[in-house]
């Protein structure tokens, strides 16, 4: 496909740049979508992804600026801190919806308001005095196997940062976990029919808590992709709706990890397109807002395309998604 396009005269480097930056911009979406996927597979809808990402972004950035260790260790620590911060936010949601049986939609919205661009993430960014400084350490591309110079594939696959490789490992891990392991089977049971899972002796509460928290941790890492790689600095609200796109991605991906990867890179390409076009000075007559709105418009378009067919076949959505499980009331 690529070679055909090249043969037909499309500028090679342009296509490669778009694909390489699709991976770069898709990575935060991929982390967040995988996290949401795990939570939803256990039956917990968490609309607080945007808030969890922002708190992960600010705390990851804090770790890089304030913990005085070597570059590599500092970045690894930052990812850990971002994951813990994201999980801590998810814990609030988990407690409200699993233990207190609150409405999952409203609780998720509350989490985004609490942690989001005007909430805790801004409070922390301000209180820890993080705004306006570039990151002391940031993730940079690593040329693994020395294959970065290979045409086309080199820049797209072999010249990415550690975060990108970590995200691939996560896709593999989540995919295998859900499809090939006993706990993975249990999660699916909890998401499809918690009453049956309970009767089998699976602890529904523990499974839901665990997957909501891991989902929060992955969202936190996704947020850190912004503050430690893409931007790389702390700006309040820097995710710009990526958390919501991640929620939509899970639906496009029919709740499957491998399709999350495809979807994330598709949306990564939409996010990268305006910058790439601008850098080349192409299509300057078109208002830049048209390109900036592309990821949002495409989210709606793809969601419509998926939902009309999904309505017919009920593709993949966990049957108990969004419904609290109360043993006494089943």
């Amino acid at each position: 496909m690529t070679s055909q396009l090249l043969a037909s005269g499309i500028n090679e480097s342009f296509l490669v740049v778009i694909l390489a930056s699709a991976v770069l911009y898709g990575t935060p979406l991929l982390f967040a979508a995988l996290g949401e996927l795990l939570a939803e597979r256990s039956g917990v809808l968490n609309l607080g992804v945007e808030g969890m990402m922002l708190v992960g972004a600010v705390m990851g950035f804090w770790a890089v600026q304030r913990l005085d260790v070597a570059s590599g260790a500092s970045l690894a620590l930052a990812i850990g801190v971002a994951a813990i911060a994201g999980a801590a936010m998810a814990l609030i949601h988990a407690f409200l919806v699993i233990t207190l049986r609150a409405n999952q939609i409203v609780s998720g919205l509350a989490l985004t308001i609490f942690a989001g661009a005007l909430g805790l993430s801004a409070y922390l960014g301000n209180d820890l005095n993080l705004s306006g400084f570039p990151a002391d350490h940031a993730f940079t591309p690593i040329d693994v196997f020395g294959l970065g110079d290979v045409p086309v594939l080199g820049p797209i696959v072999f010249d990415q940062s550690a975060l990108v490789y970590l995200s691939w490992a996560c896709v593999l891990a989540v995919g295998v976990y859900l499809a090939r392991t006993r706990p993975g089977l249990n999660v699916r049971a909890v998401g499809e029919s918690p009453a049956a899972a309970d009767a089998m002796g699976i602890n529904v509460t523990v499974y839901r808590y665990a997957h909501t928290l891991v989902g929060g941790a992955l969202a936190g890492i996704g947020g850190a992709c912004f503050s430690l790689q893409l931007t790389p600095q702390w700006v309040a609200g820097l995710t710009g709706g990526a958390g919501w796109i991640a929620v939509a991605l899970v639906i496009f991906a029919f709740w499957r990890a491998d399709l999350c990867l495809v979807g994330a890179y598709l949306f990564g390409a939409f996010s990268a397109l305006p910058l790439t076009l601008q850098a080349r000075g192409w299509l300057t007559g078109v208002p830049s807002e048209v390109f900036t709105s592309l990821p949002y418009v495409m989210t709606i378009v793809v969601l419509v395309a998926v939902s009309s067919s999904a309505a017919k076949r009920r593709l993949g959505a966990p049957a108990a998604l969004g419904i609290p499980y109360v043993r006494e009331e089943r």
């Binding site: 409200l96 207190l100 609150a102 609490f114 661009a117 909430g119």
Partner: peptide, 24 residues
Amino acid sequence: PAGLVGVMQGLILFCALGGEVLVR
């Protein structure tokens, strides 16, 4: 502190959601 009002709103909303359990 900046962001205080957003945090406050989020907390009020969380507490209202949690309080709902006391009604039901």
